[in-house]
Simulated assay, not measured.
Amino acid sequence: MRFTLRQLQVFLATARFENVSRAAESLAMSQSAASGSLKELEQQFEVQLFDRLGKRLQLSELGRQLRPRAERLLAQAQDFEAALNTEEVSGALRIGATLTIGNYLAVPMIAAFRERYAEADVALQVANTETIAGQVADFELDLGMIEGELNHPRLETIHWREDELQVFAAPDHPLAGNAPVSDEQLIAQRWIVREPGSGTRQTFERAMHGILTDLNISMELQHTEAIKRAVEAGLGIGCLSTISLKEAFERGSLVPLNIPHRDFSRQLNLILLRDKFHTATLDRWLSLCRETAQ
């Protein structure tokens, strides 16, 4: 074999960071060693894997074609190494989650996973659906847990569990109570909602079809807790996942509004690169996801 696993590691790290120094740092190598490894790989096969743009290294067309294969090869090698060490579930797993999932579901799942598999190293990145999807597609994450609907040519979507949004207000709001809220009343309110690009905003806009352009969106915030605080302060009404509102409803700091004629249901999904090699660690995480969906 004319290439080494170390060369694959350097190639993939350089593709991720677009910089040899940062790639070397991530692999605990010197810059000269990483640069030499990459140069040797290219010279052995007389190919150019990167286009050099100043200090940036951008994947060449050949590099883009080979990257998914290199990712699979390295994942298989790491899985084989774990089996040799009799550590079936070990190594790193990079998970991305949208804000509601990351803040209210993923963290206790990681705690349960680490309790079962002490050798596994699970890292969590929290961002909106658009960002997480991009990071999975760019090989920065192994798996995404998202709230939004997605149609991406390089990603596979797996349905995970059901969820539902809930419109809510402060307890002293004029609409608070059990009486159904009409479209005219919804249009008259000031709304505090998630930012465009988030799965919650996507579901909200779908639920409000027909009156969406008439709504008064007074604030767009990236964090669910900030939206809840703003609604508690009487700055408007909001719409978030019931998962994120459970505690606030129990203590009475926020109250749900009754809007029976609008559909706020949605599906939470898992996303992976198509044809991604499943390590034992990834498979066990997918099993845990299925358990929590029951």
Rank of each mutant, 00 (worst) to 15 (best):
R22I: 11
A23Y: 03
A24G: 08
A24E: 08
E25N: 09
E25T: 08
S26M: 08
L27E: 06
L27I: 10
L27H: 06
L27Q: 13
A28F: 04
M29C: 12
S30H: 12
Q31C: 05
Q31G: 05
Q31Y: 09
S32I: 11
S32Y: 06
S32C: 02
A33E: 09
A33R: 14
A33L: 12
A34F: 01
A34Q: 06
S35I: 08
S35V: 05
S35F: 12
S35K: 13
S35W: 14
G36Q: 10
G36E: 08
G36T: 05
S37C: 10
L38Y: 09
L38V: 14
L38W: 08
L38E: 12
K39R: 07
K39G: 01
K39M: 02
K39V: 01
L41F: 07
L41E: 03
E42Y: 09
E42I: 04
Q43C: 05
Q44S: 14
Q44K: 13
Q44T: 11
F45L: 14
F45N: 03
F45K: 05
F45V: 11
E46H: 03
E46D: 14
V47Y: 00
V47F: 00
V47M: 02
Q48W: 01
Q48R: 01
L49K: 05
L49P: 02
L49F: 03
F50R: 02
F50W: 04
D51Y: 11
D51T: 14
D51N: 15
R52E: 14
L53C: 13
G54C: 10
G54R: 15
K55F: 08
K55V: 10
K55C: 03
K55A: 12
K55I: 07
K55E: 04
R56G: 05
R56Y: 06
R56F: 08
L57K: 14
L57N: 15
L57Q: 15
L57V: 14
L57H: 15
Q58L: 15
L59R: 04
L59S: 03
L59V: 02
S60N: 11
S60F: 08
E61D: 06
G63L: 01
G63I: 00
G63D: 01
R64W: 01
R64F: 01
Q65I: 01
Q65E: 01
Q65H: 03
R67Q: 01
R67L: 00
R67N: 00
P68K: 06
R69M: 00
R69A: 00
A70E: 00
A70I: 00
E71I: 02
E71K: 03
R72M: 11
R72A: 15
R72P: 06
R72C: 10
L73G: 13
L73Q: 15
L73N: 12
L73D: 13
L74E: 09
Q76Y: 05
Q76R: 15
Q76K: 14
A77I: 03
A77Q: 14
A77F: 07
Q78W: 06
Q78F: 02
D79A: 12
D79S: 11
F80H: 06
E81R: 13
E81F: 02
E81A: 13
A82V: 10
A82L: 05
A83K: 12
L84I: 07
N85S: 11
N85A: 15
N85E: 13
E87H: 09
E88T: 14
E88A: 14
V89K: 13
V89W: 10
S90K: 11
S90P: 10
S90F: 09
S90G: 12
G91K: 07
G91W: 05
G91R: 08
